[in-house]
Design a protein around this nucleic acid. Structure first.
Lengths: 161, 161
DNA sequence: ACTGAAAACAATTGCGA
DNA sequence: TCGCAATTGTTTTCAGT
């Protein structure tokens, strides 16, 4: 299998991961390619899954969820079926914005949004205390998000495979 | 000031925060509006900052950063200038994908990507051990990201203000 | 694999309701 | 604020290098 992307693709990705509404012409001007070529490359990147998704970022504040919490969750036992069940629960819980299965201090780290602290308290009662799989949790209240989103440093792939 | 968005805007945002490459016609079909109306609403949502950004999500694996860590960082002292200095450092560090200033167990939670564990070790030496402002840090290795991104549950705003 | 022109498609603007 | 129609702009396809 050939290298999945090259230096130009990397530059295109750097641009669209900051703003995917740039026209292919604007991108092309920057990287020195015709809009057609840019278009074709982006299509390939999307089809191959290197570009996973294209999304709008909504301001949590503006839609009435100004408070966010990072929660470290520990399960009673690290058993595959319990972990999978908890993953499913997470997926179907709207208050959970993102979540990670981790090793270390906790089993899961989840990001929860709420209308206010009371709202979050209600959430914890429903979500944590009523779930027998959960051993405990620690809440970290988010005061400020310094970097937003998930921008990845994209480098040209190593030419020596 | 009038309510910033209504039920239809909420439905549009639900759609574009999952996929912002939907055409306004597709969205309009779903919510019962002409493509023109959808377009106009999206423009307003973007201009007003309710929709903060439009971005492509790149697969970290595909671009050679298959390992991610969540790191809980504690500073030596919680002084405004130290916190601000650390925020600036975070912003300019490419390995740091996202970061949050928090209260609780730690002062910051940051997400770091790396090529492999060795690469991460090097990063910690450079980033943590050489920074006198840092008291300590705990690494949680991300095994799986269950939900990707930052989808927010958007509700119709409360009609009673 | 690229460019450039033509065709198809989507977004924007103007207008009347 | 809406929908429709016309305009503008963007993306895609196709032929040629």
């Amino acid at each position: 299998m050939a290298r999945a992307y090259d230096r130009l693709d990397a530059r295109i990705m750097e641009m669209i991961q900051a703003n995917n509404r740039l026209t292919s012409e604007e991108i092309g001007r920057e990287v020195g390619l015709s809009s057609t070529a840019v278009q074709r490359r982006m299509k390939k990147l999307r089809e191959s899954g290197i570009v996973e998704a294209d999304v709008s970022i909504i301001s949590p504040k503006a839609v009435g969820r100004p408070v966010s919490m990072l929660v470290l969750v520990s399960l009673e036992r690290e058993r595959a079926d319990i972990i999978d069940r908890f993953k499913r629960t997470l997926r179907s819980t709207r208050e959970v914005m993102s979540d990670f299965y981790v090793t270390g201090e906790a089993d899961f780290v989840i990001m929860v949004t709420a209308r206010d602290m009371e709202d979050y308290e209600r959430f914890t009662r429903r979500f944590f205390y009523e779930n027998p799989d959960i051993k405990g949790f620690k809440t970290l209240v988010v005061m400020d998000r310094v970097k937003v989103g998930f921008a990845i440093p994209i480098e040209e792939p190593d030419p020596n495979v």
